[in-house]
Simulated scan of single mutants.
Amino acid sequence: MTDKHSHDDSSLNPFPIKKLDDLISPFLVPPGQRISLAKDYDPAYKAHYLKKSEAESELQKGIEALAKYQDMLYAQDTYALLIIFQAMDAAGKDSTIKHVMSGINPQGCQVHSFKVPAGEELDHDYLWRCSRALPERGEIGIFNRSNYEEILVTRVHPEILEQRQIPPNLIDKHIWQRRYEEINNFEKYLTSNGTIILKFFLNVSKEEQRKRFLERIELPEKNWKFSVNDARERTFWPDYMVAYEEMFNHTSTEWAPWYVIPADHKWFTRLVVAGIIYAQLKALNLNYPKVSEAKHQELLQAKEMLESQK
């Protein structure tokens, strides 16, 4: 048997921003309140930072601090952390995951990228494939896109629903409201069983997306990231913004809130995401397991044996 003891925060590397809550609070989508994506969230916002180098320096220290709490999450083996990333193309999901999680022990973290469902996935409900990829206790699971695609892409392109193996009578005007409720209930179930959920929307502007698309075309090493379909989807930008707004207004809950992160400056995006993850882990009051007295005596005996060996 093991019990827990409180850790000493002074032994941990703190996140380098003194007023971390003030930095991250503007990006929360308040549960129960309707928001306007265009009016309430600026994709180019970068707080007080004038220099990219300043934010990058703080991010590096923040990554080190984040790693400490991830180590305790893994050791305690009580909570799981699920991080969901949604965004328009070229918003920086891959690079944010790469940079923010660079200090994390791979043994305690898994990333799942969800593409267009196919094969066996279509023979199950839309939550099935994400359910299979949920993190175990002690681990961090990252979803690069998720079940939320089924209330985003399929809402913008309703013809996709007709291609799904869904009974026709279930494809009605109430389908989106049902799915909001289903997702909320699913996430409530997860949080009630120890899975913490953080949901990030990387909010890139349409103009910044255009610049990044052009860069992908102009740079040979980035050609593989681009397809002509990416350009076609830009014509549906207004429809996607409506779909995202409705998603935020219906699925940002007290137990699994959404954060709309400015994404025009990737260095700022990474800093804010790292700060939110760190703040969430810190709030869990994680502890390293403390061994029982019997186990402690075994360790002392083992120490004596090792010290006497040559």
Rank of each mutant, 00 (worst) to 15 (best):
G62H: 07
V29H: 02
A75H: 10
K98G: 09
L73H: 03
A75N: 09
A38N: 09
K61R: 14
M72T: 13
M101T: 15
K98W: 06
A91P: 06
I83K: 00
L81E: 03
A90I: 10
A47D: 13
L81D: 03
K46W: 01
L37S: 01
Y74K: 09
K61D: 15
A91E: 05
E56P: 07
L59T: 09
A90L: 08
Y79N: 14
P31R: 08
D77M: 04
P43I: 00
Q86F: 07
I63A: 06
A47R: 02
E64L: 13
H99N: 13
G92T: 10
A91D: 07
A55M: 10
L66R: 00
L37M: 03
K52L: 15
S57H: 07
L50C: 06
I84L: 03
Y69W: 11
A44Q: 10
G62A: 12
K46Q: 10
K39E: 15
S36L: 10
S36D: 12
E56V: 14
H48T: 12
A91M: 08
D89G: 05
Q60R: 08
A47H: 11
A90S: 13
E64R: 09
V100S: 03
K61S: 14
E54D: 09
T96N: 04
M88C: 07
G62N: 06
M88L: 13
D94T: 12
E54M: 05
I97N: 01
Y49M: 10
A91G: 13
E54L: 09
P43A: 00
K93M: 14
L37E: 00
P43E: 00
L50H: 01
G62F: 05
D94H: 11
T78S: 05
A65H: 03
G62E: 05
K39C: 05
Y41L: 03
E56Y: 06
M88R: 08
Y79A: 08
Q70S: 08
Y41A: 10
D94C: 11
E64N: 09
I83T: 08
H99K: 11
Y45N: 13
D89K: 08
L66T: 02
L59E: 02
I83R: 00
D71Y: 08
K52C: 15
R34A: 04
P30V: 06
Y41V: 04
Q76L: 11
Q33G: 00
E56Q: 13
S95N: 12
D77Q: 14
D40H: 10
A65Q: 02
A75I: 04
Y49F: 13
G62D: 05
E58M: 13
I83E: 00
A44R: 08
A44G: 15
L73A: 09
K61C: 13
A65R: 01
H99A: 14
M101E: 09
Q33S: 03
A87G: 10
S53N: 11
R34K: 12
K61M: 13
Y49W: 11
A65M: 07
D42K: 05
Y49V: 15
T96K: 02
I97K: 04
I84P: 00
I63W: 04
K98F: 10
Y79E: 07
Y69S: 02
Q76I: 14
L82R: 04
K51W: 07
S53M: 08
L37K: 00
Q70P: 15
F85C: 05
E54T: 12
T78L: 06
Q70V: 14
Q60F: 15
H48N: 08
Y45Q: 11
A47T: 04
L66N: 01
I84T: 07
I35E: 02
Q60E: 14
A47L: 05
A90E: 06
K68T: 12
F85M: 09
